[in-house]
Amino acid sequence: MNAALRYALTTEDGAETVRRSQEVTDWGARVAWLVGLVLFVALVYWLMREGWKWRATLQGDLPELPAPPAEPGPERLRMTGRYHGSTTAGQWLDRIAAHGLGARSRAELTLTDEGVTVVRPGAVDFLIPADRIRGARPEKGIAGKVLTEGGLLVITWEHGERLLDSGFRSDRSAEHAAWIDALGTYSPAEPAPVPHDQKHESQHEQEGVR
């Protein structure tokens, strides 16, 4: 290889190296791209947060959650695990956001004659009153959480004028069966209970017919 050819190849390789170096160190474009990505993620997060707040506003008809009793009485069952959220009964994607029911957390459940006490570190504790419990069943998922078949314990209960499904997963899933036996079974195909005011109206109508 003659000297002129070697010089030409060396010059071309050097120019290519400089060009690649310029491409790699084009920090202005990289920073702009990263800033744009961060802004996009922030926008998506903000929209999700506003949507969650709007959902909670739409569910403003739900009353405050019953507080756990100071003296719940003798313990029948206890379970530690996770609370995975609540939905409208039979509609596993219609998540309830009002009053902190949409916040996932660790949970400790205790069954007494008063009902099911749900203690949640970092979230609102509440009671599912015994006279409001409509039953329980195994499920594989609830809004935003899918598990193996039967991996979730769903308790159906009446709150205000709504029927809710609340999903829990025990640290020992074998415990779910005992809770279902204690609370009774509930099928989503069952008709929702008639609100109390409608029950009274129905009774008055029947009395009028008589």
Rank of each mutant, 00 (worst) to 15 (best):
Y7L: 15
A8K: 10
T11V: 12
A15M: 14
E23H: 09
G28K: 02
A29L: 12
R30V: 01
L34C: 04
L39T: 14
Y45V: 11
E50N: 09
E50R: 15
K53Q: 11
T57C: 06
L58D: 07
L62E: 07
R76G: 00
M79G: 03
G81S: 01
G85F: 01
G85A: 00
W92M: 00
D94Q: 09
I96E: 03
R106H: 02
L109R: 01
T110K: 09
D113H: 05
G115S: 15
T117K: 03
V118H: 02
R120S: 06
R120E: 04
F126K: 01
L127G: 11
P129T: 09
R134P: 05
R137I: 07
A143E: 03
A143S: 04
G144R: 06
K145H: 13
V146F: 10
L147S: 13
L147I: 12
L152R: 00
T156R: 11
W157V: 04
L163V: 15
D165L: 09
R169N: 03
H176E: 00
A182W: 02
L183D: 00
L183C: 11
Y186V: 07
S187I: 02
A189C: 03
A192T: 09
P193G: 04
E205I: 13
Q206G: 06
G208S: 11
